[in-house]
Amino acid sequence: MIWLRSLLFNMAFFGATGFIALVLLPLALGPRHWLTLPIRGWAAVVLWLLRVICGIHLRVTGAEHLPRGAGLIAAKHQSAFDTVVWLRLLPDPVYVLKKELLHIPLYGRLARNSGMIAVDRAGGASAMRHLLKAGRAAAEAGRQIVIFPEGTRVAPGVRVPYQPGVLALAAATGLPVVPVATDSGRYWGRRSFCKCPGTITVAVLPPLPTELRRDALMERLEAEIEAETARLLSGEAVDKPVDELGAGVRS
């Protein structure tokens, strides 16, 4: 049954994504804000398909910590789900993503024109300069920067070193870092065809103090995200349905 529901979801997901991307392509010729609401609508469609077809719901805790203006989100990355959900939870998000994604037909054009920050991970100092310049511009425009400090999707229970890009962005923008944990990989696994029913939790933690030194900031960021993620994976979190931008979300 899970396999069949996953097949139906994948068909609906890729079909809807391709159709919406084609419809949006002409808007990419105009100013960036033309794409903001339609892309948020696409994310809403994906979350609806997950709920209706796969039985996957969303719960957000700590939504009061989400920035409504300029902000810097450092989020745990376990699943492709994590690249969708922030388009619904934030008013004007900009993702830090790998440059290779811009080569994907349709998606790459829309990502570029919606102002996503594409980074060449082999680019060294020039890539870092681009990240900081684009990050400052996004902050000045009042956007919410979403970065995955692990740099890639990581399966639940696996630990990899956090990358320093988030520290550089925090220093360049002066924005407090908002840590976020999740258990999304339990239900939509890394490179997994099957989508398992359940409730994905996105746990938004309080912003870290801006006065922390670099080493202390990275240490505390990783410790808080990993501790909360471990708690979610252990099943300690209480599932309570609330409205979308309250203390939690049930979609």
Rank of each mutant, 00 (worst) to 15 (best):
V204E: 12
R214G: 15
P156D: 08
R190P: 06
L169Q: 01
G151E: 01
E211A: 15
R143D: 02
A155I: 09
A181C: 07
V204L: 04
R186D: 13
K195N: 04
G142A: 11
Q144C: 07
C196N: 14
I147F: 02
T199Q: 05
Q144T: 09
P149F: 12
R190N: 10
A203V: 06
A172G: 10
P206Q: 13
Y162D: 03
S192D: 15
P179T: 07
T152D: 06
R153H: 08
T201F: 08
Y187D: 04
R213L: 11
T182S: 13
R214E: 12
V160Q: 10
V158C: 06
I147C: 03
E140R: 03
P209I: 11
L175N: 01
R214P: 08
R214H: 10
P161K: 01
V204I: 14
L175D: 01
A181W: 01
G142P: 02
V202R: 02
P176N: 15
E150V: 07
L212E: 10
I200T: 02
V177L: 09
P161G: 05
A137T: 10
L208Q: 04
S192A: 15
E150G: 03
R191M: 10
P207H: 05
L175K: 02
P207T: 11
V180Y: 00
T152M: 10
P209W: 06
T199E: 05
F193Q: 04
P209M: 11
F148E: 01
T210A: 15
A203Q: 14
I200A: 07
W188N: 01
T210V: 15
Q163C: 09
G151T: 09
S192F: 06
L169E: 00
I145E: 00
A168P: 02
G142N: 08
C196H: 15
G189T: 06
G185Y: 03
V180D: 04
T210D: 12
P149L: 13
P161D: 10
A141I: 00
T210L: 15
R191H: 11
S192W: 03
T173W: 04
T210P: 05
R159I: 13
V177Y: 00
V202Q: 04
P161N: 06
T182W: 02
Q163E: 08
A171T: 11
R159A: 14
A171I: 11
G142V: 13
G142E: 06
A171W: 06
G189V: 08
V180E: 00
R143P: 01
S192V: 04
P161E: 06
F193R: 07
R191S: 13
A155W: 07
Q144Y: 02
T152Y: 03
Y187F: 10
Q163Y: 05
T182M: 08
G151H: 05
A139M: 06
V202I: 11
T210Q: 14
A141D: 01
A203G: 09
G198C: 05
I147P: 02
P207V: 13
P149T: 10
T201S: 12
V160A: 09
V166P: 01
L208I: 05
A170Q: 09
T201Q: 11
I200W: 00
P156S: 09
A203W: 06
I147Y: 00
E150R: 11
